[in-house]
């Protein structure tokens, strides 16, 4: 076993954390219509298994970890392994059960439907 792998293995067994991934805030677009709030976030290089979306008490936490295979000797490197993290406040009226997330080509799309009570309602005017 060469020294590098030995040290890497010891790192895995550590109880305390010593290194953290860089955190970056992904660029997002937020749209809304009467039925849902739509959030789109750029997370290039993130795979489905490494994405987590948490909605808890009006707080939406997005996280996606990018782990790229090492490519060899780097001549230059402008991006690397990173954790995309971003938190938002969302209205309490989100129907958490029916939130749908979709990851395609490194873009996360999150559909957050509004619960029935929160949807705008047309009021009919009755003539007396």
């Amino acid at each position: 076993m060469d020294k590098n792998t030995e040290i890497a293995k010891r790192d895995d067994r550590n109880i305390e954390k010593t290194r953290e991934l860089y955190e970056a805030a992904p660029a997002v677009d937020i749209y809304e219509n009467e039925d849902e709030i739509l959030l789109v976030a750029d997370m290039p290089g993130v795979i489905k298994e490494e994405v987590s979306v948490n909605i808890d008490n009006g707080r939406l936490a997005l996280s996606g970890i990018r782990k790229l295979e090492s490519g060899g000797v780097a001549s230059w490197e402008e991006f690397g392994n990173v954790e995309f993290v971003r938190n938002f406040s969302v209205p309490q009226t989100i129907d958490v059960e029916n939130v749908k997330a979709d990851l395609k080509n490194g873009v996360l799309t999150l559909h957050m439907p509004k619960s029935e009570e929160a949807k705008p309602r047309q009021i009919e005017i009755k003539t007396a």
């Binding site: 677009d29 937020i30 739509l38």
Partner: peptide, 13 residues
């Protein structure tokens, strides 16, 4: 912008 949606934030270029 998807049809019928109101825009809150556009950061993605």
């Amino acid at each position: 912008v998807p049809d019928g949606y109101k825009v809150h934030k556009t950061e993605r270029l």
